[in-house]
C-alpha cells in the first residue's frame, strides 16, 4: 500500500462510517423512537426545573444517572423505585444531610420546596425511561 492509497482509504472510510453513524443517530432520535422510549410528553415544567437543579448542584460529580457520572454515591436513575418518593423527599429535605445514614456525606444544597418538587418529578420521569432493563437490580 502506498501513502496516497492509505490516505484515500482513510477519507473514503471515514465518510462512509460517519454516514452510517448519522443514519443510526437519525433513527435513535426520531420523535417516534423518543416518544416510545422516553415519553417526552411527560417532561413538565417541574421536570425541566428539576434537571436544572440537578445541574446547578453538579450532582453528577458524585452520583451516577443511568450509570454515567462519578462513582462516589448511589445511582439515581431508579432512586424513586428504590427509596420511594417520600424517602427521596425526606433525604432532600433533611438539613442533617451531613452523614445521612452513611460515612460519606452529601453537601447541604439549601434546596427550596420548588427545587425538591422539581428533582422528584425529574427522577420520576428518568425512572420511566426505557433503559433496556438497566440496572440489573434495584440497588442500581
Amino acid at each position: 500500500m502506498t501513502k496516497s492509497s492509505a490516505r484515500n482509504i482513510f477519507i473514503g472510510g471515514t465518510l462512509f462510517f460517519a454516514a452510517v453513524f448519522l443514519i443510526l443517530t437519525y433513527k435513535s432520535l426520531s420523535s417516534e423512537t423518543l416518544s416510545k422510549r422516553t415519553h417526552p410528553e411527560n417532561i413538565s415544567d417541574k421536570v425541566v426545573w428539576g434537571k436544572r437543579i440537578w445541574e446547578r448542584n453538579a450532582c453528577i460529580d458524585c452520583h451516577t444517572l443511568l450509570g454515567e457520572g462519578a462513582y462516589y454515591a448511589p445511582e439515581l436513575g431508579n432512586v424513586i423505585k428504590r427509596r420511594g418518593e417520600a424517602g427521596v423527599r425526606a433525604i432532600l429535605k433533611t438539613d442533617a444531610l451531613q452523614g445521612w445514614g452513611t460515612v460519606r456525606k452529601m453537601p447541604k444544597f439549601n434546596l427550596s420546596e420548588k427545587d425538591i418538587d422539581g428533582l422528584v418529578e425529574f427522577f420520576k420521569w428518568v425512572g420511566r425511561i426505557d433503559t433496556n432493563n438497566w440496572p440489573p437490580n434495584e440497588q442500581g
Binding site: 500500500m1 452510517v20 435513535s28 422510549r37 443511568l66
Partner: peptide
C-alpha cells in the same frame, strides 16, 4: 493514515457503546 483510518472506522460508530442504557434503541 492506517492508524487514523482504524481510529475513525471503529471509533465513530463505536460511540454506540455509550448508548446501551441511556434510553436509546436496543
Amino acid at each position: 493514515y492506517i492508524i487514523i483510518g482504524l481510529t475513525l472506522f471503529t471509533g465513530i460508530v463505536g460511540t454506540g457503546h455509550h448508548y446501551y442504557w441511556i434510553g436509546t434503541p436496543a
